[in-house]
Computed example of a mutant assay.
Amino acid sequence: MSGPNSDYDPVEVTPLRADEVEAMRDAALAAIEAAADLEALKQARLDHAGDRSPLALANREIGALPPQARKEAGKRVGQARGAVNQALAARLAVLEAEHEERMLAEERVDVTLPTDRRPRGARHPITTMSERIADVFVAMGWEVAEGPQVEAEWLNFDALNLGPDHPARTMQDTFWLEPAEAALVLRTHTSPVQARTMLTREPPIYVVCPGRVYRTDEIDATHSPVFHQVEGLVIDRGITMAHLKGSLDHFATAMFGEGITTRFRPSYFPFTEPSAEVDLVCFVCRGTGTADGGAQSCRTCRGEGWIEWGGCGVVNPRVLVACGVDPETWTGFAFGMGIDRTLMFRHGVEDMRDVFEGDVRFAQPFGVEI
């Protein structure tokens, strides 16, 4: 019976010789260092640190050695495998950092670039203009008042001193609702809002009333059966035409810029006395009536230097009495302008049909101003 192989020399086992272990380690380190990306590093790990790698196979040979030889061989192989694993971890960190930097550079998105995935919307310029006008008067301490578009005949006409024989009551100017005995109309102006305000509030009253109105006009470049007005009403003690002039001058400046003033021309309205037409200094020629250095007549005002804007006047005492306001104590003024006309003046719109036809190409240049 033979004894244990105490003379076994592990150096004679080729995979465990010091030079072979060092060669395996150096080959693994070289492959790891040469890996240019994560995929190449993965393959290097499989080739030099996997279960079938040279160092893994050499590690299996250690079990066949006699006890006295295992320690030295195990230490030699273990140090080689440790060096390989450290190199793998270090190279992995470098390659992952490079990969992340490359992704940040290649997949970066410039969030400031415009996109056409969803077309940019726009608010309708009439809406924007109505709110801008309201803001002018709210800043002066006024309030915004609103009323229904289907209005009672009495509020639309009688309360405003438009008698039964007034031509505005005919079908030529007014949309009447059926049945006729209901005495309802589509309001022809926003003045009924002023009447409702005087009936429900105690003076002093400072209100501005923007809104949609209806008249039986034919559609053309300057007329529409549906349009928009803004009216103002002030009821207080000691109110005069001077207060009206100052308010409208401020309004004109806010709409058309510094230096734009108004002038009054005598006129007649049933609900104001005295009454006046309001003209603006032409915002193109600034009242000169000329263009191109005086060589031609201004096309905007047709050489007159003024543009018709609306109507105004001192509130008729009959209207005050009809709405329950004592004309011996209170006086006031009222005015009315077309919001559509103001928009056309400000932005050079030549055809009113562009405002109402609903073509998005008209509204888009005005943007989403709030």
Rank of each mutant, 00 (worst) to 15 (best):
G305K: 00
V11I: 11
F157T: 12
D158E: 13
V281F: 02
E273Q: 14
A44E: 11
G3C: 01
I133C: 01
E153K: 07
E231H: 08
M129L: 14
I339F: 01
C209R: 01
M352Q: 09
E61D: 12
V315C: 05
A27H: 05
D135I: 00
L65W: 08
V21T: 08
C282W: 06
I307R: 11
V314G: 05
A83I: 04
L177P: 00
V355H: 04
H243Q: 15
Y214C: 04
C298L: 08
V13K: 11
W309E: 05
F175V: 09
L155R: 09
L244A: 11
A44G: 08
L57K: 14
V319A: 04
T14S: 14
W154A: 12
R263L: 02
F335N: 05
V319I: 05
H347W: 10
W306H: 02
V234Y: 06
T329M: 08
L95W: 02
A152Y: 12
V144M: 00
G50P: 10
L320A: 08
P15G: 07
V193H: 05
L41C: 05
S267V: 12
M241K: 04
A159D: 04
R52N: 14
E107P: 00
V281Q: 04
R108M: 10
S2K: 13
R299N: 03
W154V: 15
N5M: 12
